[in-house]
Structures are given as structure tokens and as C-alpha cells.
């Protein structure tokens, strides 16, 4: 009797694995940075901003506050779809600075893009060579990192934020971090 049921058992186990596999998104790779210190970097700003410390941005100055790093580019189509949600987020979360990382882009294209689509960013870092992106393990633009007051990456979203991912993933993650900011 037991041997008769064996093929059925094998089938069920295999079926369970395949079912779980199908419901996963293979392009979503878990970031090794989660709950680890975010890379500390220093890079040029897209536009010099005297009020925020001149031409260069130093991520160490963000310590002590929760902030969001959004990786985007003017050549990135999905970034346009994501943009209204970022604008909305920035408008409703004054306490959380949103920093843009302009990834492998032409600075003048990037500035024009922001004029055209609106600028939700507290400051924009110009990462023309993609060096900062490399440190953050960026592989698909747009990507959004949530960094806590202790400088740790608490959440990472790969791909454009939309209404659903905002409601179900990103905003809950923000709430969790605000409850335990470090």
C-alpha cells in the first residue's frame, strides 16, 4: 500500500514546489543589505544647493533621521509611472527626506526631466558612472531604499512603486520604521 502511494506523494511535493515557484517573481532578488548598514558615500549633487551644503552630498549627514533613497533616471520608462506616487509620498511625509539617486544619466536630461514631471526630491545625487548604484547593489531602475535613523537599510523595493505596492508594502514598512527608528 505504501509503495502505491509513493508516486502520489512525490507528485504532491513536486506540485507544491512548482506552485510556490510560480507565484514568485524571479526578478525580485532579496537584497543582502536588508538590516545592514547602508553604504556610506559622498557624491556630487545634480544641482549645487548652498542651503544643503554645496555641491556635494555626504550620506553621513543623514544619520539620525529616516530617509528614502530613490534610484531613477530620465531614460527609465517605469520611473515616469512611479513618479506621481513619489511626489505624493514626499508631500505627505515631511519628516522623511526623499533623496534621488540619478543613476547613469546625463545631468542636463535629468534636470529637464524633473522640470517636466515635478521634483519630489530633497536633493538629487548625480551618479553618472553608477558607482553609488553599484555600492547599493542596484540592478533594476527604479529602486527605492528605506534607511532608518541608525543608517541601516530596512526595506528595498525593486521596480516602480504603484498604488498597490505603496499601500501593501512600502507604507507599512515606513510605519514599522517610524515605530522603531533605529
Amino acid at each position: 500500500m505504501a509503495t502505491r502511494l509513493l508516486p502520489l506523494a512525490v507528485f504532491l511535493i513536486l506540485g507544491a514546489f512548482l506552485f510556490v515557484g510560480l507565484s514568485r517573481d524571479p526578478s525580485e532578488i532579496p537584497s543582502p543589505l536588508i538590516n545592514k548598514p547602508a553604504p556610506v558615500f559622498e557624491a556630487a549633487r545634480l544641482e549645487a544647493d548652498a542651503a544643503q551644503g554645496g555641491e556635494r552630498f555626504d550620506s553621513a549627514t543623514m544619520e539620525g533621521q529616516i530617509w528614502v533613497l530613490n534610484v531613477w533616471a530620465s531614460w527609465c520608462g517605469p520611473c515616469i509611472a512611479e513618479h506621481p506616487f513619489l511626489v505624493e509620498f514626499a508631500a505627505t511625509h515631511d519628516a522623511i527626506p526623499v533623496i534621488g539617486l540619478n543613476y547613469k544619466d546625463d545631468p542636463s536630461d535629468a534636470s529637464a526631466w524633473l522640470v517636466r514631471h515635478g521634483d519630489p526630491f530633497d536633493t538629487v545625487i548625480s551618479d553618472t558612472d553608477g558607482d553609488v548604484g553599484l555600492d547599493f547593489g542596484v540592478y533594476g531602475v527604479p529602486e527605492t531604499f528605506l534607511i532608518d535613523a541608525a543608517g541601516r537599510v530596512r526595506y528595498k523595493h525593486v521596480g516602480p512603486l504603484d498604488a498597490q505596492s505603496m499601500q501593501e508594502k512600502f507604507l507599512p514598512a515606513v510605519r514599522t520604521v517610524m515605530e522603531s527608528p533605529s
Binding site: I29, P30, S31, P32, L33, L134, D135, F136, G137, Y139
Partner: peptide, 8 residues
């Protein structure tokens, strides 16, 4: 590489 992009 693994620190940035994971085991994958």
C-alpha cells in the same frame, strides 16, 4: 560582489 548583490 556577494555583499552587494547577494548569493544570487
Amino acid at each position: 560582489l556577494v555583499a552587494r548583490y547577494g548569493e544570487f
